[in-house]
Design a protein around this nucleic acid. Structure first.
Length: 457
RNA sequence: GUGGUUGUAGCUCAGCUGGUUAGAGCGCUAGAUUGUGGUUCUAGAGGUCGCCGGUUCGAAACCGGUCUUCCACCCCA
């Protein structure tokens, strides 16, 4: 006897109900991607390793799933190499492909490879699974879907404005009110680091600042000290910790803080542009909030940074994120193509909607009419009617076996089928059908036309 | 990658300081009901106690390893 089967860590099966609900989210996102003018593309689930490696930092490299070479994958490894046991040297010898880690880097590769057939600015969306060799946690899986929309070939800040609208539109349509779209600008972070004289420590500085709401002011200061940022520098950032109030006030104090940094001032101006535009247009349900502590790990962001936080009552990490990257395709040799994009975290949105009970009741795609099977002659009679119902777009099916009636009825009941049709020799002789409503328990013997009408609404 | 946590019937879980044949509820199958589901009643099936090894006269229980679950950190959607 075989062992009980299992699935790999951090992966999941999806039941028909779950897939239906996931489709509901995906279809909503897809609809608005298209309404906003984005075109769909798809890329392979695995890429050449050199396309992915080194694009996400050391931490990212560790989390990339590597694919073992096919055939004799040890053929390029000699004893000397093997004896060293150095994974960094050995890995490229035995693995030349890797599973996609996100959709942005493959998109950058796509743009470079298809540069001659793409009309800039190019707006694309992509909804595909990605894989990370992470330790699973709540809302963290090793296989999960990203839903990305990006624009390349335009530096216009109107794109950022539209992305904020897109986030607002999608989450509003999903019934998810009170999401917070946090926005910041990489140039502001750079500017702050410059002003306090810690420009070489930009990454450490932003990573520490990012943790403010998690470990508090003292925790952040402690981490900055540990990373070698001077006490005087930390002193100068003090205003950031007391940052509060409306976006306009925040902008004002940022302006004075960064007056001596060209880059920082540029960042504030960009942010101001976006905030003013959104202010003038208005949002349906989301709140746009300037958050100077928002950093995001990906190193390629150069301008605006977005992150969407779920409603406060749900304990969940971010359900979306994105930003502006001025030179993403530069890593593949195509200079001066600016991009900006956002991502929706499908799996986390699912968990949030589930927790808040926001899935509409009508997402089920159930069969509407089940015809019971009393034998081949009766089944043929039923299938003719079923064919006509299907032509009318009604989900109808025949119970495949001539099983006991109780069994067939139980099946209909469990499947939550609202109507059952019984047609035996009596009905065949009269050219009628007995239609039973499973909800009320009542039944009537009717003509096909009446059956169709009854089932149609 | 670091630290902790979890695993017993299809599901949710009991199972005492190690001691006969491992239990419950729900679900499942059959019957009461020969062309009628949900409710009720009756009966029944279903477990190598995650896996491998060790301690012991004896292990679901104790020990080691491993896989898995969930959580925190790291990082991130």
């Amino acid at each position: 006897m075989a062992q009980k089967p299992s699935i790999a860590k951090g992966t999941r099966d999806f039941t028909p109900e779950e897939v239906t609900k996931r489709n509901y989210i995906v279809n909503t996102i897809k609809k608005y991607f298209e309404v906003f003018g984005f075109l769909p593309i798809e890329t392979p689930s695995f890429e050449n390793s050199e396309t992915l490696m080194g694009k996400y930092g050391d931490e990212g490299d560790r989390l990339i799933f590597k694919i073992l070479n096919s055939g004799d994958f040890l053929s390029k490894v000699n004893d000397e190499l093997f004896a060293k046991k150095d994974a960094n040297i050995l890995t490229p010898k035995i693995s030349e492909k890797a599973l996609r880690y996100d959709l942005t880097v493959p998109f950058a590769r796509y743009v470079v490879m298809h540069q001659n057939e793409i009309d800039l600015p190019f707006k694309r969306y992509q909804i595909q699974p990605v894989w990370r060799a992470d330790r699973p946690q709540k809302g963290r899986f090793r296989e999960f879907y990203q839903c990305d929309a990006d624009v390349v070939g335009s530096t216009s800040l109107w794109q950022e404005v539209e992305f904020v609208q897109l986030y607002d539109t999608v989450f509003n349509s999903l019934g998810l009110k009170n999401v917070t779209i946090k926005i910041n600008n990489r140039k502001i972070l750079s500017g702050i680091a410059e002003v306090i004289g810690a420009k070489d420590k930009l990454i450490d500085f932003t990573v520490a600042l990012d943790k403010l709401d998690k470990i508090g002011e003292d925790g952040v200061k402690k981490e900055m000290l540990e990373k070698g940022i001077s006490k005087e520098a930390i002193e100068k950032v003090q205003p950031l910790f007391a940052f509060d109030g409306a976006n306009a006030e925040k902008l004002k104090s940022l302006k004075s803080l960064l007056s001596k940094s060209d880059e920082g001032t540029k960042g504030v101006e960009e942010l101001e542009f976006i905030l003013h535009a959104i202010d003038a247009i208005g949002l349906k349900g989301a709140v746009l909030e300037l958050d100077v502590t928002l950093a995001r790990g990906l190193n390629y962001y150069t301008g605006a940074i977005f992150e969407v936080a779920a409603p406060a009552e749900v304990k969940m990490g971010s359900i979306g994120g994105g930003g502006r990257y001025d030179d993403l395709t530069g890593i593949f040799g195509l200079k001066d193509v600016s991009g900006v994009g956002i991502s929706f975290g499908l799996d986390r949105i699912y968990l949030v909607l589930e927790e808040l009970g926001l899935f509409p009741g009508s997402v089920s795609e159930n069969t509407k009419v089940l015809f019971l099977n009393f034998g081949d002659k009766e089944a043929l009679y039923c299938l003719k009617a079923i064919t006509k119902l299907r032509e009318a777009g009604i989900k109808a099916e025949l119970y495949p076996d001539n099983a006991k009636m109780k069994k067939q009825m139980t099946y209909a009941n469990k499947r939550n089928v609202p109507y059952v049709v019984l047609a035996g020799s009596k009905e065949i002789d009269e050219a009628t059908f007995t239609l039973k409503s499973m909800n009320s328990g009542t039944q009537d013997t009717v003509s096909f036309q009446k059956l169709l009408e009854a089932v149609q609404h």
